[in-house]
Design a protein around this nucleic acid. Structure first.
Lengths: 136, 136
DNA sequence: TATAAAAGGATCAAATTGGTCCTAAAGGTG
DNA sequence: CACCTTTAGGACCAATTTGATCCTTTTATA
């Protein structure tokens, strides 16, 4: 239950690599994919999502590629995960204003607790922290 | 991300219904399925899992059916969810002793925090509590 | 113009989810 | 015993999601 998909893993690995580059250095998707050991075309889609949200800045043509859109210390793990996996929602019933079967369901606020717990943890971790972490 | 599947929802609804019955009262799977508004054959599989773990006790033949295997106050939401969805593991890397790419990965202990946070919340809620909660 | 790079859409195979169906086994009843 | 009731277990299947790949378009540089 509650597993991150490969897309999420790839997203994290990819953006960590970008955060480890010298500031201002532009990276090609091919380079990032090779370093992060992720299928290139798949990673390209992931970085498109990042670009739409401003997590990275992309440029085309010769000399183009990707740079972080903000300092790595201002990008949280939550943003990265949500960029590709969508919002963190442990149960459908948290989406609509109420559950289907009339009024909030019995487990409703348990799921809300889980949601805010996870969000809080992921929000407390920045890509900078991850990028500076021990080798692995 | 991190969504409970229908199987998990059905499991919770089904066992709550059972917990709401008078102590010792045997319920047919057909009855539980109708009350919880869950496809009967699917719920039957779910209750098989419960029975294997002792969350419910089953008996066959005339007068057979299901009863809780323990007091509802001694069954946690975590047990119910894990019975059908498997262990709560936000990332594959928490399964093996180390991550694939040599040594624990950078996000490893973030996922461990998430895991224990969720487990703690779900372990703190019993089926009894849910069964006695407001109507819905 | 030619080249380099990302953007975006279409497509596709594999895995997972959500469920059905059928037969077997176990227990009760006349 | 024969028969009925009820769960157990296995096989199977359709829909959805996941994990990609490929092709064309757009944007930018030389």
């Amino acid at each position: 239950m509650m597993e991150l998909t490969r897309k999420g893993e790839y997203a994290i690995r990819g953006i960590i690599y970008l955060a480890q580059q010298p500031p201002g250095r532009v990276s090609l998707i091919s380079e990032i994919a090779a370093a992060a050991e992720v299928p290139q075309t798949f990673l390209a889609k992931i970085f498109q999502s990042f670009a739409k949200l401003g997590l990275v800045t992309s440029s085309r043509g010769t000399g183009g590629g990707f740079v972080l859109g903000r300092p790595a210390s201002a990008i949280t793990l939550r943003e990265v995960v949500e960029a590709v996996e969508g919002p963190i929602v442990p149960n459908r019933c948290l989406l609509g204003s109420a559950c289907e079967r009339g009024g909030p369901c019995r487990v409703h606020d348990v799921w809300r607790q889980v949601q805010s717990g996870v969000v809080e943890i992921l929000d407390s971790v920045t890509i900078d922290t991850l990028a500076r972490g021990r080798e692995g």
